[in-house]
Amino acid sequence: MIPDWMNNVDLQPGHFSAGRHGKKGFIGKTIEGILGFLEEAFLSESYSKRPGLMQSLDPRVKLLSILAVVFAASMISDLKVLVAIYLLTLLITYLSKIGVGFFIKRVWLFIPIFAGIIAIPMIFNVFLPGDPLYTIIHLGAGAHLGPFSLPESIFITKQGTMAAVIFTMRVATCVSAVVLLFLTTPQQILFKSLRTVGVPKIYVLTLQMTYRYIFLLMEQVREMYIAKKARTIKSRGLIDDQKWVGGRIGYTLIRSLSMSEKVHMAMLSRGFSGEVHIMQEFKMSQRDYLAGAAAISISLVLVLISQDIIRV
C-alpha cells in the first residue's frame, strides 16, 4: 500500500535554482538550461494534476478537440474570429485552474513574439503595397538603396498592418491551444492518447521510454558540467573547451547506446518478446462526448466561416 502522504500532490509550482554561477560561461548556461527544463517539466506535471475543466476530460477527446481547433484556426483569416478563439482558450485556461497571467506569458514568450518580429517588415509598403496609414519618410522619385530602387515614400500600410496582426494572432491562438493541451495532460497519458490518431503502439512505447530516459540523460549532462566546473580554476582555451564539449556529447551517445543494450536485456529477461502491449485505461463518460462534440462543431463552424459559407 502506498501511504497517503505519498499520493498527495503539491500543486504549487516549484522553483529550481542553479544558485549563483557568477559570470555565466557555457557551463553556467548549460546547467541553467537543464534546471529550466526540469522546472518546466515539473510545472506542467503539477498543472495537469489540478482539478480543472480540461484535466477532467478524457485525453483522447482533448487531443482530437485541440487538433480540430488548431486546424480550424489555421484556416481562419478574420481577425475578430481569431481573437474570439483566443479568448476562448483563455477562458478554458481559467476554468482549468491555470493562472491566466502565467499562461499568457508562457504562450507569448517565444513563438508569437517571434512571429510578430518576422511580420514587422510587412507593414511597410516596401514589402507589401497598400494604402498609406502613416508616412515615415518621403524620399522623392528615383530614390534607391544600393542596387535596390525604393518607392517614392516609405509608409506603413493598412493592409500590411492588418495582415501582420492576423498572422501573429493566428500563431498565438494555435500555440495557446497546444500549450493548453500539454499543460493539462500528464505526458505519459498524452502519449498514450496518440493511439487514437493512429500512432502505432510501438512508437507510443518508444515515446514513453524516451520521456523517461531524457531525465536520466539530462541529469548525467548536468553532473558532467558541474564536475567540470568544480575542477576548473582557470579556464583552458576555447579550442580545448570545445573539444571537451564534443567529447562529452560523444560519451553521452556511447553511454546511451550501451544503456539501450542493457535496457533491452533487462526487458528480455522480464519476458519482452518485441510485441508491445499498452494498457487501455481510458473511459469515456457523457461529458467527454459532450466536450468532444462541442469542440468539433465549433471547429466545423470556423472552417465554414473561413470558406465564406457562413458570414460573420
Partner: peptide, 11 residues
C-alpha cells in the same frame, strides 16, 4: 528496436 530508438531519441 524500442530501447535503441528510445535512447537514441533521448540523446
Amino acid at each position: 528496436q524500442v530501447p535503441l530508438l528510445a535512447l537514441a531519441a533521448a540523446f
